[in-house]
Write a protein that binds this DNA or RNA. Structure first.
Lengths: 121, 121
DNA sequence: CTAGAGGTTGACGTTGACGTGAAGGTCAAG
DNA sequence: CTTGACCTTCACGTCAACGTCAACCTCTAG
């Protein structure tokens, strides 16, 4: 699979895929001519990258987490033990973020609800 | 209250306060010399601005929402009716974001838990 | 009156995740 | 053997929410 095909399939730009490689998130093979070649595993990796980035992690964190995300989640990849503390900090950050989002959501709901009642009056 | 005092009290930089004003989120009075003068209400507004920005809204959305956030939340300020649809889209965005965060949180928890069990082995 | 703390308006710098050409190599099709 | 789609590597542009620095003004205290 070449870069364009993966881009279509994953719904991202080719620029993004090259960027992910530049940041060490993706390591495609190369043809003799220098063309990037991707596998289905790369596609799965891209899916995970998108989710992690969308959650507010930066590429450095994603690069550290990716090798620790094994399919079954049964045990940890070697070297991931040392990163647990960092992951816990990140999880705390996410919890804070979720709490803030709930607050804003409640505020919005209040406004929207008030809008309904005021438009009904 | 001058800009430095509000900055200390609200835990933000003076630059941020001037930026909020530039974006129309804050309208302090001025002394004859041109110094900005803030009230307790401005402090409350800044608190709300921080929360909304932290939740991923941009200054344009915050500017629209702020006048709709009345203290009791009982009824809506005039002109806010028209924005309800926009607020509902924003709430949907927040819901999506929360869902994504929960996914990532679960993934992190899986990794952290696996780390514990593997380090115990 | 003078120092110093704090205020003012520009205006350019920063960061992260890409967008957007430019200039050129590669490859299957006609 | 050339067109056209796709690929390559630079390398500068973008956008939001500020940070930072410059040059200058204002107010209070000693």
């Amino acid at each position: 699979m070449q870069i364009g095909a993966l881009a279509d399939r994953a719904g991202v730009s080719t620029r993004a895929l090259r960027y992910y490689e530049e940041k060490g998130l993706l390591r495609p093979e190369r043809t003799a001519a220098g063309y990037r070649v991707y596998t289905d595993e790369h596609a799965e990796t891209v899916r995970r990258v998108r989710i992690l980035l969308a959650a507010g992690l930066n590429t450095d964190m994603v690069r550290e987490i990716l090798p620790c995300m094994v399919d079954d989640g049964e045990f940890l990849a070697p070297g991931c033990d040392d990163l647990v503390a960092e992951f816990e900090r990140e999880r705390q950050r996410i919890d804070d973020q979720i709490a803030e989002l709930h607050d804003v959501r409640a505020a919005l709901t209040g406004i929207i609800g008030a809008g309904r009642s005021s438009s009904a009056s």
